[in-house]
Amino acid sequence: MRTDHTPLIVIPGLFGSMSNEIIPGTGGWSFGLAGMVYEPFVLMLETMGYRRGENLFICFYDWSQKIEHSASHYLAKTVTMAKRQTGAERVNLISHSMGGLVARAYVQGDEYQNDVDQLIQLCTPNAGSAPNYSYWAGGELPTGEKGKINFVHFYMRWYLEYLRHHYKGSQMDVIHRHFPGLLDIVPGSDYQNYLIMKECNNRALLPYTHMKTTNAFLDSLNAERSILDQRNIDVTVIAGTGEESIKYLEVVPYTGTGAWVDGEVTAAAYTNEGDGDAIQESVFLLDGDHYTVEGTHIEVLYKSKDILRPKIGR
């Protein structure tokens, strides 16, 4: 269990880190434009007794790369640095969205050093997120979402445009070559079937086992999720609710080449049991202490203060 001396590492979500390693010319590691989201969260943690650079550390990482790469090259090194600087043997990880998968890749992986006490996830799509199929397979926002820009959709649209303009090749080749981390957050098998194939007047769920767009990373990670209990890691999972969130995508056969390999997205079906980006079923795939907070993917960060304080407060 934690002690008052356990250092805390914050792992932001997709687009929550920026540096020259991701986009040349953006400087050293920082939250970038996402600072408007994460800097207030860090300040909130400081009201609980933490101090950035002393017992509170940020794990910035290259979210464009595969999640396992981020866990090995960024999080593992941040954990080592935090232990060395504080003299602690174990740390607590507090992660948002994609950052929760980076955390899992470390604590469930072969490089794990028995040095994590608590894993706290906020809005992490542990089974994947349906809109990411549309980004990965077609390079565009899901139909019906263009008028509903939120933080994730805004940055996704901006980054896909950046890739198109800065690299040669077909749109899908460029995305797949320079943004492989995106595939790691499409739905995996535990999300269950999420594409509704429409042919003529018939609609039927497309079996995940028949799809070409599969998530080998999440399928492997989730098959071994019981290792968290075996490694005595306390898990807290916080999900947002009350926000219209995509649960299913309706697709039609695509006659072109190079995109929409499992069908072109034409519509979406929603649930209110989500935060606008991640649905509760996906977030709560991981066992642990479960909490639900009304709010968006971003609002949950701040609305979870009363949940976080007794777990990591000092």
Rank of each mutant, 00 (worst) to 15 (best):
A216Q: 14
I94T: 09
M1F: 07
N132S: 14
D262A: 11
K77G: 00
P253T: 03
N222V: 00
D306K: 15
A269Q: 11
V300C: 01
S17H: 09
V283H: 06
D184A: 08
H176K: 14
I9V: 14
L163C: 08
L43F: 04
H153S: 15
Y191L: 06
A137H: 06
N232D: 11
Q108Y: 05
T26S: 09
R309Q: 13
K247A: 06
A269T: 13
Y291I: 00
R157M: 10
S304D: 03
E111Q: 13
Q65G: 11
N20G: 09
W136T: 02
D184Y: 09
N132E: 02
E199W: 03
G313K: 06
A82F: 05
V265R: 01
G263D: 01
E243D: 04
I312C: 00
T214I: 14
G99N: 08
F60N: 11
Y74A: 13
H96K: 12
V265S: 03
E243S: 04
Y167E: 07
G147H: 03
P253F: 13
V107H: 02
F41R: 05
G87R: 09
Q192K: 15
E54P: 02
L33V: 08
I233Q: 01
L33R: 04
S97K: 04
Q113E: 15
F284R: 03
I307M: 11
P187Y: 05
I185A: 04
A216T: 14
S97L: 07
E111P: 00
E299Q: 15
L93W: 10
A103T: 03
Q171G: 09
L75C: 03
A137V: 06
F284N: 10
M197I: 12
P310H: 06
A88L: 05
A105L: 09
V152K: 00
Q118T: 12
H73N: 13
E54Y: 14
L182Y: 00
T266I: 15
G25K: 02
D277I: 15
E294L: 02
T292M: 14
V107N: 00
S97V: 01
M98S: 01
I23Y: 08
Y167F: 15
N232W: 00
D262H: 08
N222A: 01
D115N: 10
E243I: 12
H297V: 10
